[in-house]
Every structure is written in C-alpha cells, then in structure tokens.
Design a binder for these strands. Structure first.
Lengths: 234, 234
DNA sequence: GAAGTGGCTAGTGTCGACAGTTTGCGACAG
DNA sequence: CTGTCGCAAACTGTCGACACTAGCCACTTC
C-alpha cells in the first residue's frame, strides 16, 4: 500500500455500506463524506459550528447540496441541527460511548451467531487471512495497521452474516465509533488481548459453536469499551 | 379514548423517539410523518412512485421541504431514492422482514438485560400496568387495542433500559415493522401466546433474572416472526 | 452601575426558476 | 405485428434570492 491509496481504502471501508443508503445526488454524498472524515479524524472537534454558506463556498456549490449533506451527517449522529440555529459537530460524552458499545456488543454477538449458521467452511476460512494480518500487525506493534485490518475483519465477518439491514446499521454505528477509536487501541497490552480474542473467535466459527462465538464477540467489543473507560474516558 | 385523539396517540407512539433526530424544519418533519403514516398503513403500497412536485402542491409548499422529507423517509428505509429517478415506496420482501426481526430480537434481548440491571423496582412494577391492559385486550380479542398497548409496553420497556441510542434505533426499526404488523397478530391463538410471554417477561424482571428476561424477549420477538412466516409471508 | 430595550448582522428555511436527464409515446423500419 | 429510434413531456438536482429568526451590541433608563 502506498501513502496515496491508503486513505481511499480507508474511506472505502468506512462508507461502503452507507453508500447504498444515499439515494440523493452524489454531490451531497461527497460533501457528506468529506465532512464526516473531518469529524471522525478530529479535525472538526465536538461543538465546532459548521456554516452552510461557508461550506457551499468551499465546495463551490450552492447551499442546497450542503444542507442535504448536513442531513446525512445528522442521520449518522455526527452533527446536531437545532432548529433555526447553526449546526454543530455533536459532542461525544462517556454516556454515549457506553450506549454505542452496548449496542455493538449485542449486534456483533448476533453477527457471530449468524455466521455460524450461514457461512460456508470456505468463507470462515477466509477470515483466517484477516486474522493473520492482525497477528502480524500486533507483533510489529503497528497500532494503525492493526486498526484498519480490524475494520476489514469485522466487515468480512458482517458480510458473512448475510443480513443487509444489520450490515447497514453496524456500519452507521462504526462511523460513530471511529471518533474515539484512538483511545481504545493505544493502551499497552491491548493488542495482544485483542489478537487472542480474534483467534478464539475464528476457532469458535470453525467449530460451529454459535454460543461460544457470540460470547467471544460480545466480550471482544466490551473489552474495547473497558479500555476506553480505563483510559479515563473521552 | 375517543375516535379523535386515538390517531394522535398512535402517531405519538410511532414518532416520539425520531422527532429529536430531526433537526431540520418542522415543516419537513410534518410532511415526513404524513407520508410515513401513509406507507405503514398501506395506503401507499410498495413500489408506488412519489412525485415531489405533486407532494409540494398537496402540502402547498415548495419542493425543498418535500425533498428533505423524502430524505428522512429514505433514512427510515420507507422510500428508495435512485439517483436522478423518481423515488418510490420501498418494497417489503420476506428476506428483509427476517433481517429486521433478527435485529429486533437481539436488541430487545439487550433491552431486557439493561432493564434488569438499571430499572428500579417501582419502574418494573409500572410495566405490570401495561401487561394488565394487554391481558384485558387479549380476553376481549381486541387485536387493534392489543397492538397499540403492545407498542406502549415496549416503549416503556425500552425507556427503562436507559440507553438513548438504543431507543432511537429500535424506534426506527419499529417504524419499518409496522408495515407488516397486521400479519403478525391476527392469527388465532397468537394473542394468548403473546400474553403468556409478556407475563413471563415481567416476572423475570421482578426476579431480576437477566438471562431469563433476555431469552423471553428474544423468543417473544421471534415468535412474531414465525407467525408471519406461517401466515405465508408478505 | 445594572438591567431592560431597541436595532443590526449573520445565517437558516423556503421559494421559484433553470439545466440536464429520464421516461413514455409515437413514428417508422423490418 | 414487432422492435427500434427519436422526440416531447415530466421530473430531478441545483442554483441564487428573499423573508424571517436568533444572537449581539450599543443605548437608554432606573
């Protein structure tokens, strides 16, 4: 991977499942992506006010597509639009983090159950490839690569669950979660735990043990939450 | 309840958790509600094309708020907006029904766990009031009243879980689900099963048995799905 | 000096209009 | 009679403009 196409790949991973949802013009979606990336990467901090006229100038377009983009951002809870007032980047508090992780834990447990029920042996074997990448990243201590390969692993997993609605909703939650991801993985020892969990998970898949897979998935997510908690919150 | 305020009450139950999400003008939200009700009640059948110009005329407004309303409808998966083509009411197929029920089952299981962990005894006791209404409706065989009291029960339950994100997402799923609700409850014997389940659920809450409550919740939802399946699908 | 009041500015929500695209219909060839 | 091409109507996406509201500052008043 070069430094050029890596960001594209990342964006791809973030927005794939959401693209289909957007039926409106691709112009609005482009603006939506641009701002969303700015938010999840922290360039636009929580509380930062966004000005539709200024955005329109910056993207050299009128305010109409910008407004639609803002609506899309609101749908993903990245922006809050008070009536008749300026939209602003939504704040992240510890309460919301907890809420999102609770939902994710439940839904990934469901994913695991569905994978066991519906994925073929070949498909499950395909997950081992991702797991291998994760192990390699962890032993290098490459937190960033680990994170993105982790996203890839989860995307692969979710698509094996063969539930499009679930995929869409998890993707939406994922976008939110990327805002505080740096807190979750940068703790010492965190990567090794995570690698061990992934290995247990793939083994549970191979054994077709739905209960175990669900439990591991759930604890994997909640371990991430507790890591943030231990790091002192957001 | 009179015949006048009943529809309002119903609309309230359907849209409460979504209203906060909408930051845009109340005009767009009003149009959104109007069309959404039309869709979930079947007046606008799947595949029906909606014309933004005509809607603008009907609500005596311009096309801009209508477009925003359509975006809101798309966010709830009630409408599909292909690029540069007319939006149309999204079709419901059995696959999607299954997908939604799977997610709902998981999330209501989570709700039950959270209720056990977080609700006070008094709050749990409050659920018994709803349960009483359900029993009464079932013995009268009043399917319609049963349905709406059921919605009330679930809303109460979800609010006891004290997870705002979860509430919003379940509300969104609920809107979808109302499109095929009539299939789920009108089967003979269905109501009695459902009443028994609710009783077991409230008892599990009172006993603070998280595992049992989650299991009952899950099976309660999936029983609804199997009822639709048995009725021959959508 | 503090509190209330009035105008001023920035910015949203809405509107009507226009360009580009899709769709439906009819003419025409095979 | 059937399938294809082309035109006209319809509709979407986008634009610039306007009214109206929220928030702010200076000014007045007690």
């Amino acid at each position: 991977m070069t430094a050029v196409d890596l960001p594209d790949l990342r964006r791809e991973l973030l927005f794939t499942a959401l693209r289909g949802v957007d039926g409106s013009s691709s112009l609005a979606f482009t603006i939506f992506q641009e701002i969303a990336v700015g938010i999840v990467e922290g360039r636009l901090p929580p509380g930062h006010e966004v000005n539709s006229a200024e955005l329109a100038r910056r993207f050299s377009t009128s305010r109409t597509p910008v407004r639609e983009a803002l609506l899309l951002l609101e749908r993903e809870s990245l922006v809050i639009i008070p009536p008749r007032r300026r939209p602003y980047v939504s704040p992240v508090d510890m309460r919301q983090v907890r809420e999102i992780y609770e939902i994710r834990a439940s839904l990934y447990a469901l994913v695991s159950e569905l994978v066991v029920a519906r994925a073929s042996d070949a498909e499950i074997f395909g997950l081992r490839r991702w797991q291998g990448l994760l192990s390699a990243d962890a032993s290098c201590g490459d937190v960033d690569a680990y994170f993105w390969h982790n996203v890839g692993f989860r995307n692969a997993e979710v698509s094996l669950a063969k539930n499009g609605e679930l995929q869409r909703r998890l993707s939406s939650l994922g976008l939110q979660m990327h805002r505080f991801r740096h807190l979750s993985l940068s703790l010492p020892g965190r990567l090794l735990h995570s690698v061990a969990d992934h290995e247990r998970l793939v083994n549970a898949y191979a054994d077709r043990d739905a209960g175990l897979a669900a439990a591991v998935s759930r604890s994997l997510v909640m371990r991430g939450y507790r890591a943030i908690e231990r790091a002192g919150g957001v």
